[in-house]
Design a protein around this nucleic acid. Structure first.
Length: 704
RNA sequence: GCGCGGUUAGCUCAGUUGGUAGAGCGCGUCAUUGACGUUGACGAUGUCGGGGGUUCGAAUCCCUCACCGCGCACCA
């Protein structure tokens, strides 16, 4: 009998040691796994951002992916879980800018190379921290195949993809409205902005014979087009293209009448003026009619010289002054103070987004989205839960072209070159190498981080000619948060189909958010953030893992309660004591070849559970599988079978006793196996004490 | 505005193809020096959000309403 059983189970004395044994065994690498294995099982880890500590959401995905992997490894697959780390472009740059701010520094004015190197050092330091924490959670991923999104081979491949897409006409340079964050000095995708409903005064001004409404008087300096619906009877006497002189903010101007169907006659007076440079809708109208576009607000959010006396003023300051001036001129008709308006803000700093027209690189999404939809229609990708497929579909059917340029240094450089930039004879070349001839200037923009992470399943498996690519691509399951269903998942599918000619995974498992004990979203400002590492320190990693899995259906948010974690710590100890009892009572005994009838029945009962649970695992109902095993072990094996075994073990009937001893040892062995994917540490520790076991539990065959 | 969820025991949630309602925690009573007090046994609490329909039978399928949550959105 092992002396370790004298104390309650102590995770802190076990986990580090066990993880080292796993790592030293080499079994995280499928090439080293024992036995004949032909069928691969592959998961690509969503690369955590290398810019801070792991949070509860990371703990959830690591638990799920680890248990999928461990299950398949025990089933005899060439199980491979590929870890990575994401430089997380804008996200990390924002984190780093905050750090600079605290030190009284700013990225503006810094040498780009110097800034890049500083962020790189910061990220690499965090990457080490992140990897350590992933290990602490028991992740059986193959560290020898780890990749970072800024590894040279990754960067090179991502850049090649851009050039290829440009050659195929799927990437274009376009002058378009972008979401500009005046604080961060970069454009953002729609997904990097938040729409906030606000109460903003709605002004109605006299514009010649018309009344026009606006919430943004500060953009109105350049408005020289007045637009109405072509069928609006009230304005039928005004002809498209007709001009008129109107008195405006800084004096008289000549306005032109434009008829456009996008104007809603029901809204306000049915007439509006447009500011194409600072509004997406207005831009579209201007483009349709070939109208002039003038920039009114600069990149810092201040008014340009066109505003005359208001030049250099910040928007917030200028707005009321402009209204005042128009009011004095008798041009203010009315003010609705209670107007509900949706305002776009930067998702990181909450600064009001200023639409600006800018030359950027765009991906043509229509043909790519169609490819993705067709693949899903052919049944090549299953969504778990199924309803997430609807969300995916909605998104793919309504996708807009994707702006992939970011004006930040922290990222993969866009391989494009300009000659005579900004001139009439501007030349642009997409190429990794500098084009021949003089005067080429490199694009200083970097890719949106999703441009590289979208290619992650390909890059991780060594696309296009790495040694693993043929074996491990396409992968089996992509497990990630349901909040990424339209941010990341579609991009991986698109790149997978476009470059790899196959959908990058067969299934998408989408977990919900991990919320606090009352189901409220965790946030630093609310102070309800639960750190997974605090919990594992207190109750053990196995306990945290169980509490994240049991009853946690995919797609549904989870309330993480400390008492639940505590409950599974008790369970780990229960298992510990079950093992202790069984091992004490079977020490030195030989297994008998046949069980007495009563024992055979108990053995069959567990066999039935194995069948049931295996099916659940294969169909990703791990939340049910975990609960069933838990129930069996505690309330059937311990409460009933062990209790009724006591008289048998103490009794005179040697045949019954030997049969029961054989039974108990086999029930324990299989219970420990079944629990291993969920509670890898305590089960591996027990495995070493069960007689007749060889090698590590992590490679023991799954019971049948 | 559009979309997606949810509504089941005091709390947090399961309930896979329709077959007499479940778990954990909490609560109550009792037991136990036991493999384990990080224990065990027993127990109480539910018109499964409202209404309608399909069915021999509905928490489960269909329709509808209400409320809560989340996401998306270029109405000036």
């Amino acid at each position: 009998m092992d002396s370790k059983f004298t104390k309650p189970y102590d995770p802190s004395q076990t986990e580090g040691r066990i993880y080292e044994r796993w790592e030293e065994s080499g079994y995280f690498d499928p090439d080293n796994l024992p036995g004949e294995r032909s069928e691969p099982f592959t998961i690509v880890m969503p690369p955590p951002n290398a810019n801070g500590d792991l949070h509860a959401g990371h703990a959830l995905f690591i638990t799920l992916e680890d248990l999928f992997t461990r299950f398949r490894r025990m089933q005899g697959y060439k199980a491979l879980w590929l870890p990575g780390a994401d430089h997380a472009g804008f996200e990390t740059q924002v984190v780093y800018e905050k750090k600079l701010e605290k030190e009284g520094r700013s990225r503006f004015g810094m040498d780009p190379k110097e800034l890049y190197d500083e962020i790189l050092a910061f990220t690499l330091e965090n990457k080490k921290n992140m990897e350590k924490q992933v290990r602490e959670l028991g992740a059986s991923c193959d560290w020898s195949r780890e990749k970072f999104t800024l590894d040279p081979d990754v960067v090179a491949e991502v850049q090649r993809t851009f050039v290829k897409m440009h050659e195929d006409g799927l990437v274009y340079r376009g002058k378009r409205t972008v979401n500009w964050c005046p604080k961060h000095q970069t454009s953002l995708s729609d997904l990097e902005t938040v729409n906030v409903e606000e109460t903003t005064p709605f002004y109605t001004f006299k514009y010649g014979p018309f009344d026009i409404g606006t919430v943004r008087p500060e953009t109105k300096f350049g408005d020289k087009y007045v637009v109405m619906h072509p069928d609006d009877a009230r304005y039928k006497d005004w002809k498209h293209g007709q001009t008129l002189d109107v008195e405006w903010i800084n004096g008289p101007i000549t306005a032109t009448v434009i008829k456009d169907e996008s104007v809603d006659p029901e809204f306000g007076t049915g007439v509006m003026t447009i500011t194409p440079w600072h509004s997406q809708v207005d831009f579209e109208i201007a483009k349709r009619h070939g109208l002039d576009m003038t920039q009114i607000i600069d990149w810092r959010g201040k008014l340009l010289p066109i505003a005359q006396e208001f030049e250099s003023m910040k928007i917030a300051e200028a707005r009321s002054k402009i209204v005042e001036k128009l009011s004095v001129k008798g041009l203010l008709v009315s003010t609705d103070e209670k107007y509900q308006n949706v305002v776009k803000r930067c998702y990181k700093c909450n600064t009001m987004i200023e639409p600006q027209v800018k030359d950027q690189w765009f991906v043509s999404m229509k043909p790519l989205a169609k490819m993705a939809l067709d693949s899903v229609d052919r049944g090549e990708i299953a969504f778990i839960p199924e309803n997430q497929g609807k969300v995916f579909r909605y998104w793919m059917e309504n996708t807009l072209d994707w702006n992939i340029s970011r004006q930040i240094v922290w990222g993969i450089g866009i391989p494009a070159w300009f000659r005579n930039r900004g001139e009439a004879d501007e030349q642009i070349v997409a190429s990794v190498e500098r084009p021949g001839g003089d005067g080429w200037e490199k694009d200083t923009d970097t890719f949106d981080t999703w441009f590289s992470s979208g290619q992650w399943p390909l890059l991780m498996t060594g696309y296009p000619d790495g040694k693993d690519y043929a074996t491990y691509y396409p992968t089996d399951v992509m497990e990630t948060g349901h909040d990424l269903i339209f941010i990341w998942v579609p991009r991986m599918i698109i790149f997978g189909l476009y470059l790899g000619k196959k959908a990058p995974f067969h299934s998408v498992y989408l977990h919900g958010l991990v919320n606090d004990a009352h189901g409220k979203k965790m946030s630093k400002s609310k102070g309800n953030v639960i750190s997974p590492l605090d919990l594992t320190g207190k109750y053990g990693t196995d306990a945290l893992r169980m509490s994240l899995v049991v009853g946690n259906t995919p797609g549904t948010d989870l309330a993480l309660r400390e008492d639940k974690v505590k409950g599974y710590k008790h369970f780990a100890n229960k298992l510990w004591n079950i093992a202790r009892f069984v091992l004490e009572n079977t020490e030195g005994t030989e297994a008998v070849p046949t069980l007495v009838d009563a024992d055979a029945k108990l053995r069959e009962e567990l066999d039935a559970l194995v069948t049931d649970v295996t099916k659940d695992m294969e169909e990703y109902r791990v939340y049910l599988a975990a609960e069933k095993i838990y129930h069996y072990v505690w309330h059937r094996l311990a409460d009933e079978i062990l209790e009724e075994s006591k008289p048998v073990l103490a009794g005179e009937d040697a045949v019954a006793k030997a049969s029961r001893q054989t039974l108990l040892l086999s029930l324990l062995t299989d219970s420990v196996k079944l629990l291993h994917p969920f509670m890898p540490f305590v089960t591996e520790e027990l495995w070493g004490s069960i007689p007749g076991t060889e090698d590590l539990l992590m490679v023991a065959p799954w019971p049948r």
